[in-house]
Amino acid sequence: MDYLNAFWVGGVICVIGQILIDKTKITSARILVLFVVIGCILGGFDLYDKLISYAGAGAAVPLPGFGNLLANGVKEEIDSEGAIGILTGGLKAGAAGITAAVIFSLLNALIFDPKEK
């Protein structure tokens, strides 16, 4: 059952992205920004966690999940550290994803070359 929910919720989030790309000429690069920001806002209102508890990876894997992670991080950090958490919480929560992307991309660039199309 969790696979089915992950599939359709994840699919629907991607379809929303596709409609935005095709209908509004928003480029895919802007979609990335938009979705992370939306996820962060929904996370701020505690809405996105509800979606994750229903759809699991279907909501956590798409980019709003990353934004939600930042929002949650900020709130947890404020709870434990006070006002400084406003500045430290977000990126701390996103650190794993960002660091992984940077380090793997760097290694990747050492090994591979772009292929002609």
């Binding site: 992205g17 935005l20 979609i31 798409p62 994803g97």
Partner: peptide, 17 residues
């Protein structure tokens, strides 16, 4: 299309490419 842009793999691709 967006099916490979919106998941976190799309973010990874946007850094690696």
């Amino acid at each position: 299309g967006a099916g490979s842009v919106v998941p976190i793999t799309g973010f990874a691709n946007s850094v690696a490419a």
